[in-house]
Design a protein around this nucleic acid. Structure first.
Length: 271
DNA sequence: AATAACACCTGTGTGC
DNA sequence: TGCACACAGGTGTTAT
């Protein structure tokens, strides 16, 4: 389940292999993803890759003709491999480069996407309504407070809302709220600025740490073991419902919030 | 307008 | 051992 750190580590891993390379071919052997891979995706063929960027959990592969938008969904992965590497189950797409390498997209659960965009990306419907990047100055406590003003939803649901801040999935939402001492069901508009300041800092710290760990673990994407997976980050609450709180020893509570498992400490995260 | 629920999908783990 | 089934989760879409 790629969260933002995995997407960023993937970007860092593949970018050096793609930049300034000419695309020889795009082989779509299974176009069944979240949306069918559009025919226009072939427009990348013959182009030089000018950039490999990330916006939220979308990877953007830039050329002069347009941008390929890739989303890893729940189970997608990208690998740099030699062109003759045998195809395995759930290998959907190969982007063939002139240097004999391929960028191979594998996605068992098919929640991922491979799209083509010739518009300025701000105009693309998938990217136009996204909130600030969590690791930039644009994500800060006053901005967050303004975005949450009057919201009656649970703070955790807002933290996972891409219109408010991008890239915070279920795992890191649980962890950041624990670290900031905020009850996940707290009414978003009523969390005070002091707590939001802490929350912003924790989100940044947790994501940055995960990227750093992933970056060191997965630096070589041409390696057969280069597949991004879970980061060996210490999780304080996620997956630990019913176990003891690492801070106070209280038993951690587990509830469902927005169809997602939510774990918190009733003592450290008071209402 | 804001919020909640649903749908998509397959590998994995659990209980019978 | 085999089977049925719940669960995981991002996010666009539909319903309330």
């Amino acid at each position: 389940m790629p969260e933002l750190p995995e997407v960023e580590v993937t970007r860092q891993g593949i970018a050096p292999h793609l930049l300034d390379q000419k695309v020889r071919a795009l082989i779509v052997r299974n176009d069944s993803l979240r949306w069918p891979v559009p025919a226009q995706a072939q427009n990348i063929v013959g182009q030089i890759i000018q950039g490999v960027r990330r916006r939220a959990k979308y990877l953007l592969i830039d050329t002069d003709a347009g941008t390929t938008i890739v989303h890893l969904g729940m189970s997608g992965s990208l690998r740099i491999l030699p062109r003759n590497t045998p195809v395995e189950k759930h290998d959907h797409i190969d982007l063939e480069l002139e240097n004999g390498r391929i960028l191979r997209f594998n996605d068992p659960r098919r929640f991922g996407a491979w799209l083509w965009c010739e518009l300025p990306e701000q105009a693309h419907p998938l990217l136009s309504k996204l909130g600030p990047e969590p690791l930039t100055e644009a994500f800060n406590a006053p901005q967050l407070a303004a975005a949450l003003k009057g919201k009656k939803k649970a703070i955790k649901l807002c933290l996972m809302d891409n219109a408010i801040v991008v890239g915070v999935g279920n795992i890191y939402a649980n962890e950041a709220l624990f670290a900031a001492g905020i009850h996940p069901e707290a009414e978003a508009g009523k969390v005070d600025l002091e707590r939001l300041t802490l929350l912003v800092a924790e989100v940044k710290q947790i994501l940055a740490q995960a990227i750093k760990q992933g970056g060191t673990t997965l630096k070589d994407f041409t390696n057969a073991d280069g597949k991004p997976g879970y980061f060996a980050q210490k999780l304080h609450v996620y997956g630990r419902g019913g176990e003891t709180c690492t801070a106070c020893g209280n038993l951690l509570s587990e509830i469902r919030l927005g169809q997602r498992t939510t774990v918190f400490c009733g003592i450290c995260q008071p209402r």
